[in-house]
């Protein structure tokens, strides 16, 4: 349904070119929940924003993003606007994504009014029904954002995202800043929503619960794409292993070192300086290997070169 090919997003800054996304390819199938995980600064949010072309003007985007047979990167601004919210919706990071001076109902109704040209009354009615479905009172549509708790605000944002009935949803860190029980609520909500989704998160437990497939991003590159079940049973890439082992439930063992700078990333495998298995060959860029239908970018799984 959505196909990203060799996507690169570079920012030109005074310190040099930041390669936030560097040659990423993946495909999201219709109906699945595809999750991008990775630590902060790995480029996952930038990747999501580049799909809707929301990046600031100093971003240089190349590659192809194919949605319904069209390359989104080549569309005009007006065509793009018709896709945003209607075809592809965005569920932003929580808290400050609601306008403090408008009622939440009106904000959720806006995409409906904009894309279906309906009047305010019927749009609000639709929003009220949605609020009920999400476990909030109908009457709450006339409240202001500051009258909601963090967890409820996140639900409002989800409602806002799906109000215009889009085919594809991008959720950017939907559990950011929420406590465990609220994260569970959002996970339940996501399970209820029957839409194709691209979820960006660094919350691994949330990812395990809601996703069908997982892509791991490290330093602007996708290092592994696996079905969620298999990924959490047996991660392939050393970085994925490190991520899972750093979970409290799996030993709380952090990955040593820091993510390298995106201005001068190390040559070859970008993870090699932190990798316990690194060898001489890792100084060369690892090829993409396919292991049991899973994609992994590591020399360990390459046909030649490791042994």
């Amino acid at each position: 349904m959505l196909k990203v090919e060799e996507l690169r997003v570079h920012f030109r800054t005074e310190f040099g070119v930041v390669r936030a996304v560097d040659g990423v390819s993946f495909e999201v199938e219709r109906g699945e929940k595809f999750t991008l995980i990775g630590e902060s600064g790995s480029g996952k949010s930038v990747l999501a924003q580049s799909i809707l072309r929301l990046l600031p003007k100093n971003a240089y985007v190349s590659g192809r993003i194919i949605f319904e047979g069209r390359n989104l990167l080549e569309l005009g601004e007006e065509e793009m606007r018709r896709i945003r919210g209607r075809k592809i919706a965005w569920i932003p990071q929580s808290q400050s994504s609601l306008n403090p001076v408008l009622t939440v109902g009106l904000q959720c109704a806006e995409p409906v009014m904009e894309h279906f040209k309906t009047d305010k009354k019927s749009a609000l009615l639709k929003v009220a029904r949605m609020f009920e479905f999400f476990g909030m009172g109908r009457g709450r549509i006339s409240d202001y954002p500051h009258q909601f708790s963090g967890g409820m605000r996140q639900r409002v944002l989800v409602a806002m995202g799906i109000s215009a009935d889009p085919e594809f949803l991008i959720a950017d860190e939907p559990t950011k800043g929420l406590d465990a029980s609220k994260r569970k609520n959002i996970a339940e909500l996501f399970e209820k929503i029957d839409k194709t989704m691209l979820i960006i998160t660094h919350d691994l437990e949330f990812a395990e619960r809601v996703s069908d497939r997982i892509a791991v991003m490290y330093c602007g590159e996708v290092v592994e794409i696996s079905p969620a079940k298999e990924f959490f049973r047996e991660p392939l890439h050393p970085y994925s292993k490190g991520l899972l082992e750093s979970l409290p439930s799996r030993g709380l063992k952090p990955i040593i070192g820091f993510q390298p700078s995106m201005i001068n990333p190390p040559s070859g495998c970008r993870f090699r300086e932190r990798c316990e298995f690194a060898k001489k060959i890792c100084e060369r860029a690892p090829p993409e290997s396919i292991v049991d239908g899973r994609i992994v970018r590591c020399w360990m799984y390459a046909e030649r070169g490791w042994a």
Partner: peptide
């Protein structure tokens, strides 16, 4: 630069709106 403005844009609102 606030998130709700970017969010509005992501949901298809025009600049003047």
């Amino acid at each position: 630069e606030r998130e709700f403005v970017i969010c509005e844009k992501a949901l298809g609102a025009g600049d003047w709106y």
